[in-house]
Design a protein around this nucleic acid. Structure first.
Length: 252
DNA sequence: AAGCTACGTCGATT
DNA sequence: AATCGACGTAGCTT
């Protein structure tokens, strides 16, 4: 589905200037700049609607794709898997998608993906002998929910966990990001992180600081995955797709 | 009853 | 106008 519509306009290696603010839709869109794409995808499609997703073939045999199971200290694991099932990165040379074995490695790659483009040979970093001649690990067919991540997000502090939870299709937002501290506290905004660190200077002494956190959410590959917002206050016309609200059937 | 998760909301921002 | 950021909460889980 990826149109080879690339324009040679790639300005890879965004200047050091500013990591974040540099990215616009252009950097995000896979058609444009394919040199630094990181993607995570949800293998399950948020439980709600469990379409008939033929569980696809294993990515590539013996990869320890072990996802850190939700460490709910409350035992129960209502959710079998965290929202994200696999992490992939696209080779800047052959454009094939490569599965990254662990979230840690994925975050490591992501942090500097703009400066250090990923190429198949780098799979050695996780002891995998790979070249651009090898068939791709997976393709963006429509069988999964793909989330295009934002480049250059700081690595999660050791001992902490950053989790992206993709919402169900049709929701008003695509996903949410949560951080869990080593102590097990879940935090869901920079405001909460800030407060938490203030209340627990222990971490700050350990070297943890705000710059290591980012609640930037990935965006869905599927364009219409997220429901559009209701209607703006200024707009007079309502969305014709208003829920089947009971019609004041005057004719009755 | 209490804890969580997933989702809606809405002001702020781009 | 679209997206982001932060947070309130319904309702499910423990």
């Amino acid at each position: 589905m990826v149109h080879p519509r690339k324009r040679s306009r790639k300005r890879l290696i965004t200047s050091d200037s500013d990591d974040d603010d540099d990215y616009t839709d252009k950097d995000y869109s896979i058609e444009e700049d394919t040199s630094k794409q990181l993607v995570l995808y949800d293998p399950q499609t948020t439980r709600r609607q469990q379409r008939e997703f033929q569980l696809d073939e294993p990515i590539y045999d013996s990869t320890p794709l072990q996802q850190i199971p939700p460490k709910t200290k409350y035992g129960g694991h209502s959710r079998v898997l965290p929202s994200i099932g696999h992490y992939t990165v696209q080779c800047a040379q052959c454009f094939k998608w490569r599965v990254v074995p662990t979230k840690e490695k994925y975050e490591e790659l992501r942090e500097t993906i703009s400066e250090e483009l990923f190429v198949c040979a780098r799979a050695r970093e996780w002891n995998r002998v790979l070249s651009c001649d090898d068939p791709e690990d997976m393709s963006q067919d429509g069988s999964r929910v793909w989330a295009i991540d934002k480049p250059n997000i700081a690595q999660t502090p050791v001992g902490w966990n950053r989790e992206v939870r993709i919402r169900g299709e049709g929701c008003s937002k695509f996903a949410d990001v949560y951080y869990t501290s080593p102590a097990g506290t879940t935090l869901r905004s920079m405001v909460e992180i800030e407060r938490y660190l203030a209340e627990n200077p222990f971490y700050v002494r350990q070297g943890v600081y705000l710059g290591q956190f980012s609640f930037a959410t990935p965006k869905p590959l599927q364009e219409d995955y997220v429901r559009k917002r209701k209607y703006s206050a200024t707009t007079r016309e309502l969305p014709d797709i208003l829920e089947p609200v009971e019609v004041p059937s005057a004719a009755r």
